[in-house]
Design a protein around this nucleic acid. Structure first.
Length: 1140
RNA sequence: AGAUCCGUAGCUCAGCCUGGUUAGAGCACUACACUGAUAAUGUAGGGGUCACCAGUUCAAAUCUGGUCGGGUCUACCA
């Protein structure tokens, strides 16, 4: 028996997906989809490795859908798309998770638990949820190679990382330096940028802020003045503070600077001014001691410190306690003029004397004004206090200007000895002491007493806190290794411009800016579970060695053992180092060129290096798979990527590190196209978080609605780079509207194709020989192929999906199938019917292939059913097929346009019927369509039959433009006229609006008309206006845009008879259905009860019988137990009985 | 604080690049139809100062500047 198309009881996406999944697994469908394309041009894709120590969420589904659909699409387009999965297994989140689980802190590692045990725990924790992740991957239909993933903790992976590091080292891009890093004294540990970005780390706190005065010695009598003796602005300053003729009190010269961390003031080594900022020298009194003083402050910030009322008032009359301080601007100058000016140290102690500074930085030249571009006049005084140890800007500027460095606070957060009364005191209340006295306040008190403070106040601002101890962090100088990314900044910027970013703004803006402002990459992490930095160094730091491979290491191990003898490396001589992690790697001692022992520097490297090096490390390059990345000749098969996609939060993460390493190692981009998707928010627009309990469980969603509906929703709801408000109602809608419609369409096809035994065995009927409507839907289908291909090539899956939806709902289901229903269930199995089947089949099959990348399950399911019956493509899965290619010969835009007109005209006629309450079953005589020109008439004529059938009207008449019959209205075509008329446009519009019917007629006949506008004659041509039919007197009229339709609503007795016949057909069909007859059952019908129907029945007997598949239709006097029905208020009884 | 995206109907989104005179769709809601593919469909209806302010223009949802609100990323900001 001939194979049948499966007819569903109901659509159950999750069930159907389970079935497909099983078959994919059985057939190794994914593997096959890759091997099928063996030898084809590769499309290179990189999987950004997720970390499997957390649970997968719905946001992972969006980016993975995106990745999957592109890869599936490219496979169907004939590329071979390898997709190696991967796991990110190092790093802080994993360590923190383990610490939490074990109930320990970082300080306990190596004490309560050995590093060996700890790392073992991490190794176990890292793939804790791997099974769950794999399950999600499967269930969501994400095709990626899970059997041979790259795992970042494996030796081979780390070996490639070491190779990369050594390459950078050889090029001089790897260096060590002190840098200022966030540091938590309370926890005794440095903090990573991730930790600093934990929610809630920035807290609003009230700190004691101080505006302090740095004394600038000018005159010979003042201590330190000799340092300024040769300063270029000396004279200007000296003159300014000299006693004036008014004999107002003069005072010392001070520079004002503001800080929210007074505890850094003893460590002050410089003051920064903006080179182009304007500063004023203001004469006033010290508010605390009343001493006359002259202060330097940015002009723009004077109002913050001085009240307008005090300006230029008498100094002599000033008494202590007055409301306003008198003040007066003496002179102004640019910051650049202050460059190099020396001041006396603010808080000199034993520990911060110049000698002590020079012990650390021998040539240091501190206590002077320097220039800094970072200085603004937004707050403070426009002059920034520089404590190089406690701020990154300070450090940088200090280095540049040779200020030296002072670290008067130890790692516990308290002042070191030698800072007078402050020695030994904590700078913040790190120990939660109940009786803690704020040292910042005491410093301020001291400054006030010494006339060195101008304003002390509480200041509220956001300050980062250690998320673990809740204590404020401070910035502290720590040793760290860096990659000199800035050396290749220009090249990175240049190459970035060649990357296709979706959306563009992320690449140009967010990423571009980031590159422009890049700083060297701080690689060091003082942690335990991660890739060790493969650098060994002698104790004096004079000699060091960077190791680039396991082989090199093992040979060095032997060398050192021989050279240093004794116990050195004795456990590692035979098999080498078996695990490259701590603590083992730290046991290794190497020997320097001069024969000294070298120990590994203790740092691990940033995990982002792990993922950034993934293009090379996933293939264990260069130790294996050489030609994947850097072939001797020809193209690399796995570098750079054609496409990557991740969340926008990876811009500074993975996207950045990939780019950096691609450029630094190979002078190449690492990826050619990148799609960054937005966040998934809950339906109210809040970020999903465990705390709010609004996290959507992807398993639940997929289980309930199916992966396809979920994927389709995620893709079509909004462009992937926009933040998406996730609402399951949306999935429900997709399921019902799109998949439901598609399912109905398929179901309709299957139902009749099974009846007729259609299996596409007949020859393909040339499209030109098919009816208008078939040619139309095929034209639309090919237009759709074109659009979808364009959109997918452009990484715009949202637009592709929406186009498919539109075609399915509006064109295929609501128009083609609706209008063609009769062709499927009426008549013999001959050419027209076969054409209909072939057309609908082609639409369905093509749709399945078009949607396969986005909804891989449903499309494969339906495709398989179709192809199993027809064997048309003879390919076992839709995912092995080629993506459809448009056939331009089938596309007929004029046809698509006129079908649109047919839909519009039908819609208008239906709306008139509605208005006058005449149902569609009642035939009407005719409709009038005013047309503009022959073309329009031609167009409509070709679809006339469809319109007539759809709206049940017998004739369609056309009214040409010259007809007096129609009232018209005219409106200027603003696009055409606007440019020409310019400011006269309003007057022209008014004039055109006032046209009479005669004016319009004249315009139409002669093609133009002359107007007088503001005294100037103006010619208006007919193509510069839009003429529309407005009304047909005596008819019911409806119009939309340029189309107008008039309908004859007279129901003649003849029409009424026909209407009755149709009503009767409708009633009997209903009875057939109620009585559960098969579509093909033949029946006998008896009618009784009302003579009014006799004319209709007699005249339309054949028609009625044909419609209802009746062999006989008789009128009988009486029916005992028939069904009572009503046709247009006529009561009667019917008896329907099945034949045989 | 900076960068960036977003703000159009109760909800989800088109339209903006390329300015043009009734601002669209789907969902939801109301009513009436239709139905031998019906968890559909058709018709009609209500629902919008296109976040706000200013500017450019004959004409602004659309271009420019600013403000406000939301999201994200980055940030030592004195």
């Amino acid at each position: 028996m001939q194979a049948r198309y499966h007819e569903f009881q109901q659509l159950n996406l999750p069930e159907l997906e389970k079935e497909i999944l099983q078959s994919w697994e059985k057939d190794k469908a994914f593997e096959k989809s890759v091997t099928n394309r063996e030898g084809a041009k590769p499309f290179i894709f990189y999987e950004g490795p997720p970390s499997a120590n957390g649970l997968p969420g719905i946001h992972h589904v969006i980016s993975r859908t995106l990745k999957d659909l592109v890869c599936r699409y490219k496979s169907m387009k004939g590329f071979q798309v390898q997709r190696k999965g991967g796991w990110d297994t190092h790093g802080l989140p994993i360590e923190l998770g383990v610490e939490k689980e074990l109930g320990i802190t970082k300080e306990d590692i190596g004490k309560k638990i050995s590093v060996e045990e700890y790392n073992q725990k991490c190794r176990e924790a890292v793939l804790r949820y791997k099974d769950l992740w794999d399950d999600l991957t499967r269930k969501m239909g994400y095709w990626v190679d899970l059997d041979n993933p790259y795992i970042t903790f494996e030796n081979s992976y780390i070996e490639t990382l070491w190779w990369c590091l050594k390459e950078l080292y050889k090029k001089g891009y790897l260096y060590e330096s002190v840098s200022i890093q966030p540091y938590s004294p309370a926890a005794g540990t440095g903090l990573s940028s991730h930790e600093l970005n934990q929610p809630g780390t920035y807290k609003d706190v009230k700190d004691t802020s101080a505006t302090v005065l740095f004394h600038v010695p000018l005159s010979a009598g003042e201590r330190g003045s000799e340092a300024n003796a040769s300063h270029s602005s000396l004279k200007k300053l000296t003159d300014a503070v000299a006693p004036g003729a008014d004999s107002e009190p003069t005072g010392k010269l001070y520079i004002m600077a503001w800080t929210t961390t007074p505890w850094t003031l003893p460590s002050n080594l410089g003051l920064a001014v903006g080179p182009n900022v304007e500063y004023s020298l203001v004469k006033t009194f010290n508010p605390y001691t009343g001493l006359p003083s002259s202060v330097i402050i940015a002009t723009a910030l004077i109002p913050k410190y001085f009240k307008e009322e005090g300006k230029d008032i008498s100094f002599a009359d000033h008494k202590e306690g007055d409301k306003f301080l008198p003040w007066k601007v003496i002179t102004t100058f640019k910051g650049a003029e202050l460059d190099g000016l020396k001041y006396n140290q603010l808080l000199p102690f034993e520990a911060n004397s110049l000698d002590r500074v020079r012990e650390i930085t021998p040539e240091a030249d501190p206590f002077k004004v320097i220039l800094g571009d970072f200085v603004t006049t937004e707050d403070g005084t426009g002059i920034v206090h520089m404590a190089p140890a406690f701020g990154a800007d300070d450090f940088k500027a200090g280095k540049k200007n040779n200020l030296g460095i002072l670290t008067l606070v130890d790692r516990e957060g308290k002042f070191v000895p030698g800072v007078g009364e402050f020695s030994g005191r904590f700078v913040k209340n790190y120990k939660s002491e109940a009786d803690y006295v704020d040292v910042n306040v005491d410093i301020c008190v001291l400054l006030k007493k010494e006339s060195k403070a101008f304003k002390i106040e509480k200041y509220e601002h956001a300050y980062p806190h250690c998320w673990r101890t809740d204590k404020p962090i401070l910035y502290y100088p720590l040793d760290a290794w860096f990659i000199r990314t800035t050396a290749l900044k220009d090249r990175m910027v240049e190459l970035n411009k060649t990357i296709n970013w979706k959306p563009k703004s992320t690449g140009e803006g967010r990423f571009g800016n980031w590159l422009e402002n890049m700083v060297d990459w701080n690689l060091s992490r003082s942690r335990f579970w991660g890739t060790p930095l493969p650098i060994w160094r002698t104790e004096d730091g004079e000699e060091e060695k960077c190791i680039g491979s396991i082989e090199e290491l093992n040979s060095e191990i032997k060398k050192a053992s021989t050279a240093l003898r004794g116990e050195t490396n004795k456990h590692y001589l035979h098999e080498g180092l078996l695990d490259l992690h701590k603590p083992y790697v730290d046991d290794i001692i190497l020997v320097s060129e001069s024969g000294k022992p070298m120990k590994r520097v203790p740092d691990l490297i940033d995990v982002w290096f792990d993922s950034g090096a993934m293009p090379y490390a996933q293939w264990h390059f260069p130790f294996e798979n050489r030609d994947m990345v850097d072939p001797e000749k020809g193209e690399a098969r796995a570098f750079p990527a054609d496409f990557i996609a991740e969340g926008v939060d990876q811009t500074r993460g993975w996207f950045y590190t990939l780019h950096v390493l691609g450029v630094m190692l190979f002078d190449s981009v690492a990826y050619k196209s990148v799609v960054s998707n937005g966040l998934v928010l809950d339906k109210d627009g809040n970020k999903m978080s465990k705390r709010l309990g609004n996290v959507v469980d992807p398993f639940k969603t997929i289980g309930q609605f199916g992966a396809d509906a979920t994927r389709w929703y995620l893709v079509t709801n909004a462009s992937p780079w926009e933040n998406m408000k996730f609402d399951v109602e949306g999935i429900r809608e997709v399921q019902r509207k799109f998949f439901g419609t598609l399912y109905n369409t398929y179901q309709f096809f299957a139902l009749y194709a099974n009846v007729d035994g259609f299996a596409f065995k007949e020859a393909y009927i040339p499209v030109k020989d098919r009816p208008e409507i078939d040619r139309w839907i095929l034209s639309s289908l090919n237009s759709l192929i074109r659009k979808v291909t364009l959109h997918l090539n452009d990484y715009e899956p949202t637009l592709a999906g929406r186009a498919i939806e539109y075609f399915t709902d509006e064109l295929l289901s609501n128009w083609y199938v609706r209008l063609c229903r009769r062709r499927f269930w009426k008549g013999e199995y001959e050419k027209d019917k076969i054409a209909a089947y072939q057309t609908l089949y082609e639409c369905l099959e093509t749709l399945m292939r078009l949607m396969a990348p986005v909804s891989p399950f449903f499309s494969d399911y339906i495709y398989r059913i179709l192809d199993k019956v027809t064997g048309r493509l003879g390919v076992a899965s839709v995912h092995y097929t080629d993506f459809p290619v448009e056939n331009p010969e089938v596309i007929d835009l004029a046809l698509e346009e006129r079908m649109q007109m047919a839909q519009d005209i039908s819609s208008l006629i239906l709306s008139i019927r509605k208005k006058v309450n005449i149902r569609v079953r009642q035939p009407l005589q005719k409709a009038l369509v005013p047309v503009n020109g022959k073309d329009m008439e031609e167009q409509i004529r070709k679809v006339e039959d469809l319109i007539k059938a759809e709206v049940n009207v017998k004739d369609l008449e056309y009214l040409s433009g010259s007809n007096d019959f129609i009232h018209k209205k005219v409106k200027p075509n603003f696009v055409a006229l606007g440019k020409k008329m310019g400011s006269k446009m309003k007057a022209v519009a008014a004039a055109i609006g006032g046209f009479t019917q005669d004016d319009i007629k004249k315009l139409e006949l002669t093609g133009e008309i002359e107007l007088m506008i503001e005294g100037t004659p103006i010619i208006i041509r007919v193509d510069e206006v839009d003429i529309q039919s407005e009304d047909v007197p005596g008819w019911m009229v409806a119009s939309k845009n340029a189309l107008t339709v008039a309908l004859d609503i007279q129901v003649s007795p003849e029409l009424e008879k026909e209407g009755n016949a149709r009503e009767l057909v409708n009633r009997i069909q209903k009875i057939r259905k109620d009585q559960g007859y098969e579509l093909t059952d033949r029946i006998d019908v008896k009618l009784a009860g009302n003579e009014k129907l006799i004319p209709a029945i007699t005249q339309f007997n054949n028609y009625i019988c044909a419609e209802i598949l009746a062999d006989t239709l008789e009128l009988v006097p009486e029916i005992a137990d028939g069904t009572a029905i009503e046709v247009n208020d006529i009561q009667l009884k019917v008896l329907v009985s099945k034949k045989g």
